[in-house]
Design a protein around this nucleic acid. Structure first.
Lengths: 198, 198
DNA sequence: TCATTATATTACACAGTGTAAATTTAGTCG
DNA sequence: CGACTAAATTTACACTGTGTAATATAATGA
């Protein structure tokens, strides 16, 4: 087996592993923009010049890491059925595999997906929308409906707020193909069938 | 009137306006990490040293800008009822005001909320989840249900994918208070009442 | 007009970047 | 093993950017 595999030099693998581990470590300690190639190489116990043998700069390294992440996740999504949850209650078995993988590598994903700076604006808006949705739940008695359905309040809020902000961002990225009024109505439709049982 | 107002020096307002406008301009042209105080001051046609009279560094400036953004948006959310949409079809009138404000300042919001780098990972994952949800729609005949409800397919996908990724991020930020299996089941509950009319 | 305060100018020490050339070290494979 | 190859290190250099200090100039508003 393994005839077509190129078999990369272990030194390359070692260097990249050291760099990526150091990057995660540093992200736990400071914001992205404080991470210099200097610091990164020092923490990874490699020479600074060696960094440039592997990546153009830090953003480039992040892109490569993102590529790897997507590769991992994709292989989970393409996993054969027998590897998936068989729990009859699970309507979407692959989602369990996905979440389990994330939970197993939580240190990585936490730091990588929840990394600050640049995200300041999105974070703030998320906070605002969270308040907005929470208020709405309280006023409309949504809480009891959620309880009835067995949905956790905090999860419903995370879900709703992220859905809103994410949709707004996508809408902006597509140069607003719908009017604000239309989009607001769509939100209402999406949310209505969200909290009503029958 | 206006006795209690401090009335800030117009020079201060001018400088800050120039800096913020320049920042938005530069963000349209390059990624955040390429924006140096040097470049920013040059574009804003102010002296580099003047920048430091207002902000500690660029991240600090971004936080101040985020504060202002939240201030603006909050004042919209607290607007009196008579300023809100009266369209009886609009179930959530304030959302229209919010979206209209964003649309009016689309140049700002687009660049600020959709800014790259650091967000690479989130962006990639969003892409993956979009594929996943699209597949799911196609397989489960969700499309026809959406059409029936008057929900646009692309909006439903934006909504669903953002909701998933945002919830996962919030879950990680809270140090995973639920098991992957439980969370997956919650997703199913949230999505089920999403696409079923009765 | 005059005191105040923001901005501009210049200068400096320092940290980080990206690249080049020569050298050492570790891995591969006959 | 030993020779070849490729990766990593070392040192050096030119350059860009940072943050602060001291002084000069210009705009504000009372």
């Amino acid at each position: 087996m393994n005839h077509s595999e190129p078999r990369t030099d272990p030194r390359i693998l070692r260097t990249r592993r050291l760099l990526r581990d150091a990057f995660v470590e540093l992200l736990e300690e400071m914001d992205v923009e404080k991470i210099s190639v200097n610091r990164l190489a020092e923490r990874a116990t490699i020479n600074r010049v060696t960094f440039y043998l592997h990546y153009r700069d830090i953003p480039d390294m992040m892109e490569k890491m993102a590529d790897d992440m997507i590769e991992d996740l994709s292989s989970i999504l393409q996993a054969p059925n027998e590897l998936r949850s068989l729990d009859p209650e699970v309507e979407w078995p692959i989602m369990v595999n996905l979440l389990e993988h994330i939970a197993q590598h939580a240190r990585f994903y936490k730091v990588i997906l929840a990394t600050k700076r640049t995200t300041v604006f999105t974070e703030r808006l998320l906070g605002l929308l969270t308040t907005l949705i929470t208020d709405r739940f309280e006023r409309s008695g949504g809480d009891s409906k959620l309880a009835e359905l067995g949905i956790k309040r905090d999860i419903a809020i995370w879900y709703g707020a992220s859905a809103l902000i994410g949709t707004i961002v996508s809408w902006l990225r597509s140069d607003m193909p719908y009017t604000p009024l239309f989009l607001a109505k769509q939100f209402a439709l999406l949310r209505r069938y969200h909290l009503m049982k029958s």
